[in-house]
Design a protein around this nucleic acid. Structure first.
Lengths: 367, 367
DNA sequence: CTTAAATTTGTGTTCGGACACGCAGATGTC
DNA sequence: GACATCTGCGTGTCCGAACACAAATTTAAG
């Protein structure tokens, strides 16, 4: 709008406060930053006026004037071991890009998810660097606790994502709600199988004992049927499979399918639905529906050819993005951040897949 | 991190460019802003160096130095007439909040969606104010065109959302992909009805002739079955309903259900699925599944009690947010913005509903 | 060849805040 | 009482870009 703009905002500056408090801007600055050496009464006077005028520092000016840099560390599994982590990684990088202008830098520490020692090693490395904030996916519970203690002692805020550990209050948790996703999977399974049948929950390549999220998914799935009084109608089995031996994998599946009466639905709780899809394809079985997790390439292949009906997804790129975002909100902008932030549970099928794929640097942010 | 930072800081400033090009910063500034009157050869030299050094202006400094304000106008239906618009409105306000620090202001112009004259009136009002950018949902095609012309002549960029008008190239379109959502609805309908049956497409309270998006939704729905050679298996009817007369509405439905053999699925292309749900409830019909659009309260009620199976949603809050975002990207940050931006097509069911609601509206959080 | 006008380029100030520096005055030490 | 030290506070520079204005240069006119 070119002109006749009513009036400008009465933005309060340090200078205004100084004037009103009858001190210099330097003093006001010292008060604001607690840089000390200000007489008690003056300090109170200034603080009172700051509150009175509802002073809000100009972030532009602040960032411009100070050479302060914010260094964050991000600890998560190497995407070369598990393609799932490609997405969080790119979300983290997108966030770094977005906050670059505020002197935010993110250092990535990636580890072999199968190797506890590597996890600990990288966590130690990171800790030594004394970053200003930490984002991590704490997939090893026990080993993580001592780090939490240390970071708390050092007053380094940390944000968790993908895996939750409630103790030692983190700044924030970016969710993955496993139980709820189990419920959702069950809803879809139920919807697609109006008539009674058997269903199978398959945990592939991860030990249930070690992975709380798999337990939650199974619970969610089973509870759906329990809550809706469908127990009598559907028979639900679960199994842990390993792909270590290809022939064993197949043999086990053969046996399962042989022995399970009227098996119509398989729910894969890990991201390996494609392996079951492949098996079913080889065996020319097409009356068994598949629901799985994660938009990784092999899964997408079978989603597109119809072997997988649905993939459940919880915006992994967004999780990385929001993790860094929360740290920046807290440290750079000094704003309050939500203790917990769940991203939407997406139901992805061939027909809406496109919108969930990474269109270059397009990020679907839930606002 | 306290020290021993490598210190690469290869941040290019205007000064650096000036130095390398052997001119003053003023000249570089003139080149950057096309403030003219720079010798052709110098201009080229500077441009080349800018590209070479990959100069990126420091937004902090830029915003700080200039008192420039950006005034955007947002034109969309009043949420008091149609609850759907609550979401875009709040997205717009969220964006305004986020960009406040860059001196971005958004003025809202809301109109009665049933009243063309009101639409034109508000559009005129807005145009008179000469905003720097416009975000609108151009639900009236014909009436909009002349405004587009005017805005183009005035060089005011505009972004469309929710409804697309391809002519008079807008800066960007924030989508709603109706055709694709029809396909998606069909996929779900098919998934939930493995056996052959009849299905009904219901357009409620909007004239198909006037609403291209309804046509697209129907096309998508029908094409799914055509493409998958399911035409012989499912019989698909469509109907336009109006709620003007409650008794007529019911009578029409009675007749439809009476006359349609084995009707198992209704796809409501507008946000009034709840009206069908209510009807089915009153008639104690529970063998007909419902798929509809939009997370408005009455729909949520029937989603939660199971009368509606799925609601399709295309992040309406996000549409408002991204609309303003794109304008800011273009005008404030002078970045390129995608011509078209589709938000993900969300499949919402009782089991994942919470994640799509605003935090304040969330019913519960399951950890 | 001079002078005015037009064009091109350089300089200096400004934005709001961070921070280094340093000056008074108070307090302390021998 | 001379000198050092500590407190409390003000001044001035800097950050990078925008922009107003002034200076330098070229071109045109007489």
């Amino acid at each position: 709008m070119k002109k006749d703009r009513p009036q400008k905002n009465t933005v309060v500056r340090i200078k205004d406060i100084a004037l009103k408090a009858d001190v210099s801007t330097g003093t006001v600055d010292r008060v604001i930053h607690n840089r000390g050496r200000v007489a008690e009464d003056v300090k109170n006077r200034v603080l009172k006026i700051i509150k009175e005028l509802n002073y809000e520092p100009n972030l532009m000016a602040r960032m411009l004037g100070s050479k302060k840099e914010y260094h964050f560390a991000a600890l998560f599994p190497d995407h070369n071991y598990d393609a799932f982590w490609t997405a969080p990684k790119s979300g983290i990088e997108k966030a770094e890009q977005d906050f670059k202008q505020y002197n935010v830098f993110v250092e990535q520490y990636v580890f072999d998810p199968q190797d506890v020692n590597d996890y600990v090693k990288k966590a130690n490395e990171l800790t030594r660097k004394k970053p200003d904030g930490i984002l991590l996916s704490p997939i090893y519970y026990k080993e993580t606790l001592s780090f939490f203690e240390k970071w708390n002692a050092d007053k380094i805020p940390f944000v968790l994502f993908n895996t939750q550990i409630a103790d030692f209050d983190p700044l924030s948790y970016i969710g993955q709600d496993s139980y709820q996703s189990g419920l959702l999977a069950a809803k879809l399974a139920h919807y697609g199988n109006p008539d009674s049948c058997s269903m199978l929950i398959a945990h592939i390549d991860e030990k249930i004992s070690n992975a709380q999220h798999l337990v939650k998914k199974e619970q969610g799935f089973r509870n759906y049927f329990a809550q809706n009084n469908l127990d009598h109608k559907y028979k639900i089995e679960s199994v842990e499979l390993t792909r270590a031996s290809q022939s064993n994998f197949i043999k086990t599946l053969d046996a399962l399918i042989e022995s399970t009466f009227d098996l119509k639905q398989i729910f894969v709780t890990t991201s390996q639905a494609y392996d079951i899809a492949k098996y079913l394809e080889q065996r020319h079985i097409n009356h068994i529906k598949l629901i799985g997790y994660d938009l990784i390439p092999p899964n997408l292949h079978y989603l597109n050819n119809g072997a997988i009906s649905f993939l459940i997804n919880q915006n992994p790129k967004g999780q990385g993005y929001w993790g860094i975002y929360q740290l920046a909100e807290h440290l750079v902008f000094k704003r309050e951040v939500p203790i917990i932030k769940y991203l939407p549970l997406d139901v992805v099928t061939k027909e809406n897949l496109n919108y969930f794929l990474d269109e270059k640097d397009q990020l679907f942010i839930e606002i």
